[in-house]
Protein backbone atom coordinates (compact mmCIF):
# COMPACT_ATOMS: atom_id res chain seq x y z
CA UNK A 1 0.00 0.00 0.00
CA UNK A 2 1.41 3.35 -0.96
CA UNK A 3 2.11 6.03 1.58
CA UNK A 4 -0.10 9.09 1.47
CA UNK A 5 1.51 11.23 -1.19
CA UNK A 6 0.01 14.41 0.13
CA UNK A 7 1.14 14.16 3.68
CA UNK A 8 3.49 17.09 3.40
CA UNK A 9 1.25 19.52 1.63
CA UNK A 10 -2.30 18.71 2.44
CA UNK A 11 -2.11 19.06 6.17
CA UNK A 12 -5.19 21.09 6.84
CA UNK A 13 -4.76 20.56 10.57
CA UNK A 14 -1.10 21.34 10.58
CA UNK A 15 -0.01 24.87 10.72
CA UNK A 16 1.79 26.40 7.81
CA UNK A 17 5.10 26.45 9.59
CA UNK A 18 4.99 22.75 10.38
CA UNK A 19 4.28 22.00 6.74
CA UNK A 20 7.19 24.17 5.71
CA UNK A 21 9.48 22.35 8.08
CA UNK A 22 8.38 19.02 6.71
CA UNK A 23 9.04 20.19 3.16
CA UNK A 24 12.42 21.52 4.25
CA UNK A 25 13.46 18.29 5.93
CA UNK A 26 12.10 15.93 3.30
CA UNK A 27 12.73 17.64 -0.02
CA UNK A 28 14.98 20.62 0.69
CA UNK A 29 18.24 18.85 -0.08
CA UNK A 30 17.02 17.37 -3.36
CA UNK A 31 15.56 20.61 -4.65
CA UNK A 32 18.55 22.68 -3.58
CA UNK A 33 20.97 20.25 -5.23
CA UNK A 34 19.13 20.47 -8.53
CA UNK A 35 19.14 24.27 -8.31
CA UNK A 36 22.86 24.26 -7.53
CA UNK A 37 23.59 21.91 -10.40
CA UNK A 38 21.72 24.05 -12.92
CA UNK A 39 22.38 27.56 -11.64
CA UNK A 40 25.83 26.95 -10.17
CA UNK A 41 25.45 29.88 -7.84
CA UNK A 42 24.43 29.35 -4.25
CA UNK A 43 22.56 32.64 -3.93
CA UNK A 44 20.59 32.06 -7.09
CA UNK A 45 20.04 28.46 -6.14
CA UNK A 46 18.59 29.44 -2.79
CA UNK A 47 16.35 32.00 -4.42
CA UNK A 48 15.12 29.48 -6.97
CA UNK A 49 14.52 26.89 -4.28
CA UNK A 50 12.43 29.34 -2.29
CA UNK A 51 10.38 30.07 -5.39
CA UNK A 52 9.74 26.37 -5.93
CA UNK A 53 8.59 25.79 -2.37
CA UNK A 54 6.49 28.95 -2.47
CA UNK A 55 4.67 27.45 -5.43
CA UNK A 56 4.26 24.21 -3.55
CA UNK A 57 2.69 26.09 -0.66
CA UNK A 58 0.54 28.36 -2.76
CA UNK A 59 -0.73 25.67 -5.10
CA UNK A 60 -1.25 22.73 -2.82
CA UNK A 61 -3.77 21.37 -5.29
CA UNK A 62 -0.88 20.93 -7.70
CA UNK A 63 0.19 18.11 -5.44
CA UNK A 64 -3.21 16.55 -5.17
CA UNK A 65 -3.44 13.58 -7.46
CA UNK A 66 0.33 13.46 -7.72
CA UNK A 67 1.64 10.06 -6.75
CA UNK A 68 5.03 11.63 -6.18
CA UNK A 69 5.46 15.10 -4.71
CA UNK A 70 9.18 14.67 -5.37
CA UNK A 71 8.48 14.33 -9.10
CA UNK A 72 6.30 17.44 -9.02
CA UNK A 73 8.96 19.41 -7.19
CA UNK A 74 11.82 18.31 -9.44
CA UNK A 75 9.79 19.10 -12.53
CA UNK A 76 9.03 22.61 -11.28
CA UNK A 77 12.61 23.06 -10.11
CA UNK A 78 14.15 22.03 -13.41
CA UNK A 79 11.70 24.09 -15.39
CA UNK A 80 12.21 27.16 -13.22
CA UNK A 81 16.01 26.99 -13.31
CA UNK A 82 16.18 26.41 -17.07
CA UNK A 83 13.79 29.33 -17.57
CA UNK A 84 15.95 31.48 -15.36
CA UNK A 85 19.04 30.63 -17.37
CA UNK A 86 17.24 31.50 -20.59
CA UNK A 87 15.98 34.76 -19.13
CA UNK A 88 19.49 36.00 -18.44
CA UNK A 89 21.12 38.02 -21.15
CA UNK A 90 24.15 35.88 -21.78
CA UNK A 91 23.03 32.86 -19.84
CA UNK A 92 25.23 30.12 -21.12
CA UNK A 93 28.43 32.10 -21.25
CA UNK A 94 27.83 33.16 -17.67
CA UNK A 95 26.74 29.65 -16.82
CA UNK A 96 30.08 28.22 -17.84
CA UNK A 97 31.93 30.92 -15.98
CA UNK A 98 30.15 30.25 -12.74
CA UNK A 99 31.34 28.51 -9.66
CA UNK A 100 33.26 25.58 -11.01
CA UNK A 101 33.13 24.06 -7.59
CA UNK A 102 29.35 23.76 -7.62
CA UNK A 103 28.59 20.36 -6.20
CA UNK A 104 27.34 17.91 -8.79
CA UNK A 105 24.07 16.25 -7.96
CA UNK A 106 24.07 12.75 -6.59
CA UNK A 107 26.86 10.53 -5.42
CA UNK A 108 27.17 7.58 -7.76
CA UNK A 109 30.89 7.91 -8.28
CA UNK A 110 33.25 9.08 -11.00
CA UNK A 111 31.25 7.85 -13.97
CA UNK A 112 28.12 9.68 -12.86
CA UNK A 113 30.11 12.81 -12.24
CA UNK A 114 31.56 12.63 -15.74
CA UNK A 115 28.10 12.12 -17.20
CA UNK A 116 26.82 15.17 -15.38
CA UNK A 117 29.74 17.28 -16.49
CA UNK A 118 29.21 16.15 -20.07
CA UNK A 119 25.53 17.01 -19.85
CA UNK A 120 26.43 20.35 -18.35
CA UNK A 121 28.82 21.11 -21.19
CA UNK A 122 26.34 20.38 -23.95
CA UNK A 123 23.04 21.48 -22.47
CA UNK A 124 23.06 24.87 -24.13
CA UNK A 125 23.05 23.28 -27.58
CA UNK A 126 19.54 21.89 -27.43
CA UNK A 127 16.01 23.28 -27.18
CA UNK A 128 14.35 23.92 -23.80
CA UNK A 129 12.24 20.78 -23.71
CA UNK A 130 15.22 18.60 -24.59
CA UNK A 131 17.19 20.32 -21.85
CA UNK A 132 14.55 19.35 -19.32
CA UNK A 133 14.42 15.78 -20.64
CA UNK A 134 18.19 15.49 -20.50
CA UNK A 135 18.39 16.73 -16.92
CA UNK A 136 15.64 14.40 -15.73
CA UNK A 137 17.13 11.42 -17.57
CA UNK A 138 20.90 11.71 -17.10
CA UNK A 139 21.09 13.83 -13.97
CA UNK A 140 17.97 12.73 -12.10
CA UNK A 141 18.22 9.20 -13.51
CA UNK A 142 14.52 8.91 -14.24
CA UNK A 143 13.44 6.19 -16.64
CA UNK A 144 12.26 7.09 -20.15
CA UNK A 145 8.70 6.49 -19.00
CA UNK A 146 9.11 8.76 -16.00
CA UNK A 147 10.60 11.54 -18.11
CA UNK A 148 7.79 11.18 -20.62
CA UNK A 149 5.22 11.44 -17.82
CA UNK A 150 6.88 14.50 -16.33
CA UNK A 151 7.04 16.29 -19.67
CA UNK A 152 3.65 15.12 -20.86
CA UNK A 153 5.18 13.63 -24.01
CA UNK A 154 5.20 10.16 -25.47
CA UNK A 155 8.09 7.80 -24.76
CA UNK A 156 9.15 7.72 -28.46
CA UNK A 157 9.21 11.52 -28.55
CA UNK A 158 11.36 11.70 -25.43
CA UNK A 159 13.62 8.94 -26.73
CA UNK A 160 14.12 10.81 -30.00
CA UNK A 161 15.06 13.99 -28.16
CA UNK A 162 17.48 12.19 -25.87
CA UNK A 163 19.08 10.32 -28.77
CA UNK A 164 19.58 13.62 -30.57
CA UNK A 165 21.35 14.91 -27.49
CA UNK A 166 23.36 11.71 -27.10
CA UNK A 167 24.56 12.11 -30.68
CA UNK A 168 26.27 15.32 -29.61
CA UNK A 169 28.40 13.36 -27.17
CA UNK A 170 30.08 11.09 -29.74
CA UNK A 171 28.22 8.16 -28.24
CA UNK A 172 29.58 8.72 -24.76
CA UNK A 173 25.97 8.85 -23.62
CA UNK A 174 23.39 6.29 -24.64
CA UNK A 175 19.64 6.04 -24.31
CA UNK A 176 18.67 2.62 -23.00
Amino acid sequence: MSQPALKVIDGGQKDRRARLRELYETYGGSVYERCRYLLKDSTQAEDAMQEVFARALAHADGFRGEASPLTWLMKITTHHCLNQLRAERAPWRRWFERDAAARPEGDRGEQALETRELVRALLSRVDPETQAAVVHYWVGEMTLEEVAAVLGRSVPTVRKRLERFAALTNEELRVS
Binding site: R17, L20, R21, Y24, E25, G28, G29, S30, Y32, E33, S42, E46, D47, M49, Q50, F53, A54, L57, R103, D107
Partner: peptide, 19 residues
Amino acid sequence: AQARFEAEVPFERFAAGVE
Protein backbone atom coordinates in the same frame (compact mmCIF):
# COMPACT_ATOMS: atom_id res chain seq x y z
CA ALA B 1 23.27 16.33 0.85
CA GLN B 2 20.29 17.06 3.09
CA ALA B 3 22.63 17.71 6.03
CA ARG B 4 24.78 20.03 3.88
CA PHE B 5 21.68 21.85 2.77
CA GLU B 6 20.44 22.30 6.33
CA ALA B 7 23.86 23.58 7.39
CA GLU B 8 24.02 25.98 4.46
CA VAL B 9 20.41 27.21 4.57
CA PRO B 10 19.02 27.29 8.10
CA PHE B 11 15.32 26.62 8.43
CA GLU B 12 14.49 30.14 9.63
CA ARG B 13 16.04 31.67 6.53
CA PHE B 14 14.37 29.09 4.30
CA ALA B 15 10.95 29.71 5.84
CA ALA B 16 11.26 33.49 5.66
CA GLY B 17 12.32 33.34 2.00
CA VAL B 18 9.54 30.98 1.00
CA GLU B 19 6.92 33.06 2.79
